[in-house]
């Protein structure tokens, strides 16, 4: 990854473009795919992820929806019930709460309650995460709500190639998938990458990525915090410690094997994520590793999360509650020196 920071060539593409390409390629490949969301057609999406999609595929397949998240998810569920694959955009992932019942009760349970007769191929995607001054309702990472609702896969990429490859996998998955896009990464030039096309771009769900190899501590994370952890690893290197950074990429299903294999090597675990601490997914990883990798651990596993607060607006407040490179470095040092 580090080499990508050196320079930006014209063929390198950003995280947003990666998602855009994946959606467009899949719509071209799959005539039964529909896209729906608020302002995704005429406008091309609040962030431009669906820019040009309606012009190419028409208003029947790229639907500008009323501001009705419940109906957006619910109608998508009906379309999927009747043979379609549906990409649903939440304008901000924060707004997903307005469609909560339709996701967790209607959509997530469909395959289960019909004993497998019905499956719902649907991707609900949207911009997520803090660090951008978005305040309480444009900064959330609410994936834990859905990790606690059986029947939903949950994805959160941190690089353009993962964003594209995981989106293709999500759009081809027969189950509902929640896809958390990190809006602060959408146009971040430092992380731009060359992208493959079609099947060559595929990244399977449920396979973690070792973002940096190391031997003294394992930092397990996803999304935006991957980049914070890589920076923390640089700091730790200056202190003489070698940190391994694992980007889990998908929360459900979780690639436990890659984490366990890393702990066999480093014997120390720090989990980082920007959601609130209590019942957050960091806690789930800690619990599983404490149970399954207890004998490899030489120090109490730790987590760095948001404080148990909403995400406040102005920068000093926001940075105070979210995980930072400093907090990650400090926690990792404590774990290493335990």
């Amino acid at each position: 990854m580090a080499s990508l920071i050196d320079g930006v060539s014209s063929t390198k593409k950003n995280y947003l473009t990666a998602i855009k390409e994946a959606i467009a390629e899949e719509m071209a490949r799959n005539p039964h795919m529909i896209a729906m969301g608020e302002d995704i057609g005429i406008l091309g999406g609040a962030f431009g992820v669906t820019d040009g999609l309606q012009a190419r595929f028409g208003p029947e397949r790229v639907i500008d929806m009323p501001i009705s998240e419940g109906a957006i998810v619910g109608t998508a569920c009906g379309m999927a019930l009747n043979g379609k694959t549906v990409m649903v955009e939440m304008q901000f992932i924060d707004f997903i709460s307005c469609g909560f019942d339709q996701i967790v009760n209607m959509t997530a349970t469909y395959h289960y309650r019909t004993a497998g007769e019905v499956n719902i191929p649907m991707v609900i995607r949207g911009p997520a995460g803090g660090y951008g001054g978005g305040a309480l309702y444009h900064s959330q990472m609410n994936e834990a709500w859905f990790a606690n609702s059986p029947g939903l896969k949950i994805v959160c990429p941190s690089t353009p190639s993962d964003a594209k490859g995981l989106m293709i996998s999500a759009l081809r998955d027969p189950n509902p998938v929640l896809f958390y896009e990190i809006k602060e990464l959408y146009r971040k030039r430092e992380i731009e990458e060359e992208l493959n096309a079609g099947d060559d771009a595929i990244v399977p769900l449920g396979k973690a990525r070792i973002a940096r190899e190391g031997t003294d501590v394992t930092l397990v994370t996803y999304g935006q915090n991957v980049w914070h952890c890589l920076e923390a690893a640089d700091n730790l290197a200056k202190e003489g410690y070698s940190a391994e950074v694992i980007d889990i990429r998908t929360l459900v299903p979780l690639d436990e094997e890659t984490i366990i294999a890393s702990l066999q090597k480093t014997n120390r675990l720090v989990v980082v994520n920007e959601a609130p601490m209590t019942c957050g997914f960091a806690g789930e990883i800690l619990a599983r590793m404490t149970t399954k990798a207890f004998r490899y651990l030489d120090a109490p596993p730790a987590r760095v999360t948001r404080l148990d607060t909403p995400v406040p607006w102005v920068k000093p407040l926001e940075l105070h509650v979210l995980p930072s490179v400093e907090k990650i470095t400090e926690t990792a040092l404590q774990t290493i020196r335990f």
Binding site: I34, G74, T75, M79, K84, N105, M106, Y110, V118
Partner: peptide, 29 residues
């Protein structure tokens, strides 16, 4: 039953009307 064209309800009343709309949207397409 998908094959019998009967939408499965939940206990959240009115919660299947959007699915009904989606089903016929797909059918019309």
């Amino acid at each position: 039953s998908k094959s019998k064209r009967i939408i499965h309800s939940t206990s959240m009343l009115a919660g299947t009307i959007p699915a009904a709309a989606g089903v016929v949207y797909a059918d019309r397409l």
